[in-house]
Lab assay of single mutants.
Amino acid sequence: HAATELTPEQAAALKPYDRIVITGRFNAIGDAVSAVSRRADEEGAASFYVVDTSEFGNSGNWRVVADVYKA
């Protein structure tokens, strides 16, 4: 099962156990969220919340930071 994305309210009520950072070329924010979901799932997380997204220069590469939560 894939890790689910939390709302800001849900994330605020929970304590993350880790923070992950992924970088890559994403065509849309949805693609980045899917990549975070896969990584969170690999780490055994039940859910995640994207904290920050930023573009690296003009290369089209993105850096996505997310907190991950157990259950």
Rank of each mutant, 00 (worst) to 15 (best):
H1G: 14
A2Y: 14
A2F: 14
A3W: 05
A3R: 02
A3V: 11
T4Q: 11
T4V: 14
T4H: 14
E5I: 08
E5T: 04
E5Q: 13
L6A: 02
L6E: 02
L6M: 06
T7P: 06
T7V: 03
T7S: 10
T7C: 07
T7A: 07
T7I: 05
T7M: 05
P8I: 10
P8V: 10
P8E: 12
P8A: 15
P8N: 08
P8G: 11
P8K: 15
E9I: 08
E9F: 09
E9C: 13
Q10L: 07
Q10W: 06
A11V: 04
A11E: 01
A12H: 08
A12M: 11
A12D: 06
A12Y: 07
A12E: 08
A12G: 07
A12L: 09
A13R: 14
A13M: 13
L14S: 09
L14I: 06
L14N: 09
L14V: 05
L14P: 02
L14Q: 12
K15G: 03
K15W: 08
K15T: 13
K15P: 05
K15C: 14
K15Y: 07
K15F: 08
K15I: 14
K15A: 07
P16T: 03
Y17E: 01
Y17K: 01
Y17P: 08
D18A: 15
D18V: 09
D18Y: 09
D18E: 08
R19S: 05
R19N: 00
R19E: 01
R19V: 04
R19F: 04
R19H: 02
R19M: 05
I20T: 00
I20K: 00
I20M: 06
I20C: 04
V21T: 09
V21E: 06
V21P: 00
V21D: 04
V21H: 04
I22A: 01
I22D: 01
I22P: 00
I22W: 02
T23G: 02
T23W: 12
T23K: 06
T23M: 10
T23L: 11
T23I: 15
G24R: 00
G24S: 03
G24A: 06
G24P: 00
G24L: 06
R25D: 06
R25L: 10
R25F: 13
F26D: 01
F26Q: 01
F26E: 00
F26M: 00
N27A: 12
N27E: 12
N27H: 11
N27S: 12
N27W: 09
A28I: 07
A28M: 08
A28N: 15
A28H: 14
A28E: 12
A28S: 15
I29R: 13
I29E: 07
I29H: 10
I29C: 10
I29M: 12
G30E: 15
G30Y: 10
G30M: 10
G30V: 11
G30T: 13
G30K: 14
D31T: 05
D31F: 09
D31A: 06
D31M: 07
D31I: 07
D31C: 08
A32N: 00
A32W: 10
A32S: 03
A32F: 07
A32C: 08
V33Q: 05
V33L: 14
S34C: 13
S34A: 15
S34L: 15
S34V: 13
S34E: 13
S34D: 14
S34I: 14
A35P: 01
A35E: 12
A35D: 04
A35S: 05
V36Q: 02
V36C: 08
V36T: 04
V36F: 01
V36G: 00
V36N: 01
V36P: 05
S37P: 04
S37K: 15
S37N: 09
S37A: 15
S37D: 03
R38N: 08
R38E: 09
R38M: 10
R38W: 06
R38T: 10
R38G: 07
R38K: 13
R38F: 09
R38L: 12
R39V: 11
R39Q: 08
R39W: 11
R39I: 12
R39G: 02
R39C: 10
R39A: 11
R39K: 12
A40K: 02
A40C: 13
D41C: 15
D41F: 15
D41M: 15
D41H: 15
D41S: 15
D41P: 00
D41W: 15
D41A: 15
E42S: 08
E42L: 12
E42H: 08
E43D: 11
E43K: 10
E43N: 09
E43M: 15
E43H: 14
G44N: 06
G44H: 06
G44C: 08
G44R: 04
G44V: 04
A45I: 04
A45W: 15
A45F: 15
A46H: 14
A46T: 13
A46M: 10
A46F: 10
S47N: 06
S47I: 04
S47L: 08
S47H: 15
F48Q: 00
F48H: 02
F48C: 03
F48L: 00
F48A: 00
F48P: 03
Y49K: 04
Y49D: 01
Y49C: 08
Y49S: 04
V50A: 00
V50H: 00
V50E: 02
V51C: 04
V51E: 00
V51A: 02
V51I: 11
V51L: 07
V51F: 04
V51Q: 03
V51K: 02
V51P: 03
V51R: 04
D52F: 13
D52S: 15
D52A: 12
T53Q: 08
T53C: 15
T53V: 15
T53G: 06
S54M: 14
S54R: 13
S54T: 14
S54K: 14
E55Y: 14
E55T: 12
E55H: 10
E55G: 06
E55S: 10
E55N: 11
E55F: 14
E55K: 11
F56C: 12
F56A: 07
F56K: 06
F56P: 06
G57F: 07
G57C: 10
G57E: 10
G57Y: 06
N58K: 10
N58I: 12
N58E: 14
N58W: 07
N58C: 10
N58G: 13
N58V: 11
N58Q: 12
S59M: 10
S59T: 12
S59G: 11
S59N: 12
S59A: 11
S59F: 09
S59H: 08
G60N: 05
G60I: 04
G60K: 08
G60Q: 06
G60D: 06
G60P: 04
G60C: 07
N61G: 10
N61W: 15
N61M: 15
N61C: 15
N61H: 14
W62G: 00
W62Q: 03
W62M: 09
W62T: 04
R63M: 12
R63G: 03
R63I: 14
V64N: 02
V64D: 02
V64S: 00
V64A: 01
V64K: 03
V65Q: 02
V65L: 05
V65G: 03
V65R: 02
V65F: 05
A66Y: 05
A66S: 02
D67M: 11
D67L: 15
D67E: 08
D67G: 02
D67T: 05
D67F: 14
D67N: 09
V68A: 01
V68W: 04
V68G: 00
V68Y: 06
Y69C: 03
Y69E: 01
Y69T: 00
Y69W: 00
K70H: 13
K70F: 11
K70G: 09
K70Y: 11
K70V: 09
K70S: 08
A71S: 11
A71Q: 13
A71C: 11
A71V: 10
A71D: 14
